[in-house]
Structure formats: structure tokens, C-alpha cells
């Protein structure tokens, strides 16, 4: 290593490939020379892209139905607050998997992929999209094999919960997939969709925020910081405001 200077010589082709790759993910990615004044352009921001309504972008076949069924057992509906399905957690997951997250964009995906200790982190070539595809297929197959030919979403709520409890404890095994890890991931994602800004497809009408008393994307609590043990009175707002604020709903 010490004597091998050439290891650090970088060829131009590698530079181009390396540089161009990450440039894709960064908003203002072209190099600039800055002098004399702040390089500021009005309205040059990069607002978030709202999840598009409409059909599934990632889920195929019965996958969407399965994830909706999972979402509704992870967050069951109750008289006051809709469940994971109606509030959009499956839509959230679908849009996330169809986007940069599903593809592991920006993560380090160079080989070799070795099995390490858990505290060394995720070491797989597969991104979340592929893991969902395989996990959902394995769940479908396991349910059909073991529960009278029924898909997960066709089971009674009690049977669905039995399957999920089994996945959580490791007793209900999936073929070729770590069922427990897959279920943990689904729980995390369903709950994330429930609590993320509605712009991403879950937490429809801010139902989750209303449920817990979180006022959302507000920005100024100066008047409230010193009012101790009083309930904050204002309803939540999302990044796109509130339905009541749009002319359409006012009429």
C-alpha cells in the first residue's frame, strides 16, 4: 500500500462515471464559481413532488390488495380514525417503492456483498422494491399453502392477525425470505406513511395528526412556548395547507 502510488491515480473514465452518477440525485448539481454576491435566484426552490393519485405505480397483480390488508391490520380502523388502508399507507409504500427509495438511489451498492453482523448494517444488493416483491410473493405462497388456498387478503381478520403474530415471532416461516425482517419493514413503512405529510400519499386528510394532536407543518410557536400544560388549540396543517383553505371545498 505504502509504495503503491498508482493506486491513487484516477483515470478520467472513472471520474466521469463516478461524478455523473451522483449528479443525478442532487438538485443544483452543476459546479459554479461563486464570488461578489450570494448566488441566489428567486423561486429556485425544490418543493416536494406530491404522490400522484391513480393506479398502483409499483404493485402488480394482487400485491396492492395484500399491502392494503396488511396496513389495515397494522393500523386497524376504529370509529374515530380510519385504518392504514383508508388513510393511504399502501399508496405511500407504493409511491416510495416506485421512486428513489425503492431503487436504493444514492446508497453504496458496490460489491462484494458479504454477510456481516447485524450491527454492520444492511448488506444486500437488493433494494426495498425487490425485497417487497419477494416478500409479498413469499407471504402469498405461504398463506395459500398453509391456510386452505387463500391469499393473505382473503383471510378473516383473526387469521390475518395469527399470520402476522407468527411472522413477528418467527413461527410463521416464509420460503426463501426472512419473514420476521420483512414484517418489521412493513410495520415500519405502514406507520411511516401514516405519520408522514399527506403529500406522500398516506395520512389522508391528516387523520393521524388529528388522532395524536400534532399540529403539522406549522412554523411558529413563539406565543406558545411559555404556555405550559395547556392544549394547543389549532388544528393541523400539511405542507399543502388544509382542505378548508381551498376555494373548492369552501363552496
Amino acid at each position: 500500500m505504502k509504495d503503491n502510488h498508482s493506486r491513487f491515480e484516477i483515470c478520467r473514465r472513472e471520474l466521469l462515471a463516478g461524478a455523473a452518477y451522483f449528479a443525478l440525485g442532487v438538485s443544483r448539481s452543476s459546479a459554479t464559481v461563486i464570488f461578489d454576491h450570494l448566488p441566489w435566484t428567486p423561486n429556485a426552490g425544490d418543493p416536494p413532488t406530491a404522490a400522484t393519485p391513480g393506479p398502483w405505480l409499483f404493485f402488480a397483480g394482487d400485491e396492492g390488495k395484500t399491502v392494503e390488508a396488511l396496513a389495515d391490520r397494522i393500523i386497524p380502523p376504529d370509529p374515530e380514525t380510519p385504518g392504514g388502508k383508508e388513510s393511504g399507507s399502501a399508496v405511500f409504500i407504493d409511491r416510495q417503492l416506485a421512486g428513489p427509495y425503492g431503487r436504493q438511489d444514492g446508497l453504496y451498492v458496490r460489491p462484494p456483498f458479504l454477510k456481516g453482523a447485524k450491527n454492520q448494517g444492511h448488506q444486500s444488493e437488493k433494494g426495498p422494491a425487490q425485497e417487497y416483491r419477494e416478500g409479498l410473493a413469499a407471504l402469498d405462497k405461504a398463506c395459500k399453502d398453509q391456510l386452505g388456498g387463500k391469499a393473505f387478503f382473503e383471510l378473516s381478520d383473526a387469521d390475518k392477525d395469527r399470520v402476522l403474530n407468527g411472522l413477528e415471532s418467527g413461527d410463521f416461516k416464509l420460503d426463501g425470505v426472512d419473514g420476521r425482517a420483512f414484517f418489521e419493514q412493513v410495520v415500519k413503512d405502514v406507520q411511516m406513511g401514516f405519520f408522514a405529510d399527506p403529500i406522500y400519499g398516506g395520512n389522508r386528510d391528516m387523520v393521524a395528526w388529528k388522532m395524536i394532536g400534532y399540529p403539522g407543518a406549522r412554523y411558529n410557536y413563539l406565543d406558545w412556548v411559555s404556555r405550559h400544560n395547556e392544549k394547543f388549540p389549532l388544528p393541523p396543517v400539511s405542507m399543502t395547507g388544509r382542505a378548508e383553505w381551498t376555494t373548492r371545498t369552501q363552496r
Binding site: 441566489w40 426552490g45 408522514a196 407543518a217
Partner: peptide
């Protein structure tokens, strides 16, 4: 104003 304006900076997911 460009990268973390108060209109959409409060985005836990992003």
C-alpha cells in the same frame, strides 16, 4: 429561501 423555506422545510420524511 431556496433550500429550506418555511413552505416545505417541515418535512420529516424527506
Amino acid at each position: 429561501p431556496t433550500d429550506f423555506p418555511p413552505t416545505y422545510m417541515q418535512d420529516e420524511l424527506r
